[in-house]
Amino acid sequence: MAEEIHFATDLYQGTAGYYDRYRLPYPAALLDYLVAASQVSGGGRLLDLACGTGQLAFPLSPHFAEVWAVDQERDMVATVRAKADAAGIKALRSVVSSAETLDAPPNSFELAVIGNAFHRLDRDLVARRMLDWLAPGGHLALCWSTSPWVGTEDWQRSLAATLNRWQQQLSAEERIPAGLDQARRDLPDADVLAEAGFEVVGRSAFTAEHSWTLEELTGHIRSTSFLPPAVLDDHGAAFDADLAATLLPHSADGIFTETVSSAYDLARKPA
């Protein structure tokens, strides 16, 4: 088995406000297909693990009697709790915990979801724990979407180069562990789930066009683990100015359009 890559536990500290405002929601079509494919009953329990500010927990909540939203970052969970209170959602339980140490009852969740985060976890351990937490016949969905600096548009290439330059300038390269991509090639997520005992159902993929403003892009970048506010610190204004100077030549109206790819990989606990 390939050696797992380990991330620091505080990489998203201070990002919750940016994360909630500037992270793109998952497409409605993806969520609809996921609900149908996982055959939820409407009266079960959902687990959103490494939930961020609830990008999956909230839109999926109408299909469940109870939702657990779990994240190791306290400010993420505090944001989830405030949003649930504001929306009057009583059946959402917000929990501060890592995926590896969460205390959850066995056979108790109808669906578990992880959004853009499985690669950051101890995948082997979490997959085994998920299998125990899910009810027989329950499903696990690994959800993800692409980032604006990954793409072939000229502005995306310039954005990626600018982010790389600033990571080097601020000595932030090691916030993303070396060898991550190779580790996932050596042991793909689907293989991890199969080895844990899941029946791998397969992938459903979706695309949608999205247009960003420069302000939205700078906010989105501050929601990341590699250039959050704590890393940019008092360089924030200089970073924003550099990004504007780099990107605006690629857009006459200050709008940057890309095709966003989203998907979920679905697996099932044997009945």
Score class of each variant (00 low, 15 high):
2 A>D: 03
7 F>A: 03
8 A>P: 02
16 A>P: 06
16 A>W: 01
17 G>T: 11
18 Y>I: 00
25 P>M: 01
28 A>R: 14
31 L>K: 07
36 A>I: 05
46 L>S: 04
46 L>T: 04
47 L>N: 02
47 L>T: 02
53 T>F: 08
59 P>T: 03
64 F>N: 02
66 E>V: 02
71 D>F: 04
80 V>N: 02
81 R>M: 05
83 K>S: 10
86 A>K: 13
91 A>P: 00
92 L>C: 09
97 S>I: 10
97 S>M: 07
97 S>F: 00
98 S>G: 15
99 A>M: 05
102 L>I: 12
102 L>P: 10
103 D>Q: 14
105 P>W: 10
109 F>Y: 13
109 F>S: 07
112 A>Q: 07
113 V>T: 15
118 F>I: 11
120 R>Y: 12
121 L>T: 06
126 V>H: 11
127 A>M: 10
128 R>S: 14
129 R>H: 08
130 M>R: 05
131 L>N: 02
133 W>V: 01
134 L>P: 04
135 A>L: 09
136 P>K: 12
141 A>I: 06
143 C>W: 01
143 C>L: 13
144 W>Q: 08
144 W>N: 11
145 S>W: 07
145 S>F: 08
147 S>I: 00
151 G>E: 05
153 E>C: 03
153 E>A: 13
159 L>V: 10
160 A>Y: 06
160 A>S: 09
164 N>F: 12
165 R>D: 13
169 Q>Y: 13
178 A>S: 14
180 L>A: 08
182 Q>S: 12
182 Q>E: 15
189 D>A: 12
190 A>G: 05
191 D>R: 12
193 L>W: 11
196 A>C: 13
196 A>G: 13
201 V>P: 00
201 V>R: 08
202 G>F: 13
206 F>I: 07
208 A>S: 10
208 A>T: 02
208 A>Y: 02
212 W>M: 03
216 E>K: 09
217 L>H: 06
218 T>G: 06
221 I>L: 11
221 I>V: 15
223 S>V: 06
229 P>N: 10
234 D>A: 12
234 D>R: 14
235 H>E: 08
235 H>K: 11
241 A>S: 14
244 A>Q: 15
245 A>G: 09
246 T>P: 01
248 L>E: 11
253 D>C: 05
259 T>F: 05
261 S>I: 01
262 S>I: 04
263 A>T: 09
264 Y>S: 04
264 Y>P: 00
264 Y>L: 07
265 D>P: 00
267 A>T: 07
268 R>W: 04
269 K>S: 00
270 P>Y: 11
